[in-house]
C-alpha cells in the first residue's frame, strides 16, 4: 500500500482536505469521506455517467479520476447546484418535465446538463442528445430529459 497523501480542493465552494491513498478514486472520496452521496456509481468503465461531477469547469466521471489529481481543483456536485434555497433551473425543469424516474442517473445527468448549458446556452435537440450521450438513463427513454434541458435553457436565457 502506498503512502497516503493530503489533497485539498474546493467542493461546492467550500475548501476541503482529504488524506487518501494515491489509488483512491474521486467518487469514493466524495461519497465516503466527504458525505456527498449525490453522485452515484453505476459502472466501472466510465460509460454510465452516474458519477458525473464538474471539475474545473469540465464534466468528468468521478469513477475514473484519482482524488490526488484534484489538488487545488474546484469541484461542483449536484449538492452544489441549489443556491440560497432556490433550485437550479435544471433541477426544477427535471421535476416539471418528468425527466427522472428512479433518480439514480439524475444527479450525474443534471450536473452534465449544467456544464452543457454553460458551454452551449441555446442547444438544439441534437446538441442536447449528443451532449448527454455520456450519461445513461435506463428509465426515461431520454425524451423528457431532453425536454427538461430545453426548458431550463429557455428559462436561464430569459433570466439573462
Amino acid at each position: 500500500m502506498a503512502t497516503a497523501k493530503k489533497v485539498s480542493f474546493k467542493l461546492n465552494g467550500k475548501p476541503v482536505e482529504v488524506t487518501v491513498e494515491p489509488r483512491e478514486l474521486l467518487i469514493h472520496s466524495l461519497r465516503e469521506r466527504l458525505a456527498h452521496t449525490g453522485p452515484h456509481i453505476g459502472c466501472e468503465t466510465s460509460h454510465c455517467g452516474a458519477c458525473t461531477v464538474d471539475l474545473n469547469e469540465m464534466s468528468v466521471k468521478a469513477c475514473t479520476v484519482l482524488t490526488v489529481q484534484c489538488e487545488g481543483a474546484e469541484i461542483t456536485t449536484i449538492e452544489g447546484l441549489e443556491q440560497g434555497g432556490a433550485l437550479h433551473a435544471l433541477q426544477q425543469a427535471f421535476h416539471e418535465e418528468h425527466g427522472l424516474q428512479c433518480g439514480y442517473c439524475t444527479p450525474g445527468m443534471i450536473t452534465r446538463a449544467y456544464r452543457l448549458l454553460k458551454e452551449n446556452p441555446n442547444p438544439s435537440e441534437q446538441d442536447i442528445r449528443s451532449g448527454i450521450s455520456g450519461n445513461l438513463c435506463r428509465c426515461t427513454g431520454y425524451q423528457n430529459i431532453v425536454k427538461a434541458v430545453q426548458s431550463a435553457a429557455k428559462k436561464l436565457a430569459a433570466a439573462g
Binding site: H40, L87, Q91, Q92, H95, G103
Partner: peptide, 21 residues
C-alpha cells in the same frame, strides 16, 4: 400531478443502498 418523490432525487438526496453507512 408532478411527482412527490422528485424533491430528494433532483437534489442528490436519495437514499440508495450504497449511500448507507
Amino acid at each position: 400531478l408532478l411527482r412527490k418523490e422528485d424533491a430528494k432525487f433532483i437534489r442528490g438526496q436519495g437514499s440508495y443502498i450504497d449511500d448507507i453507512k
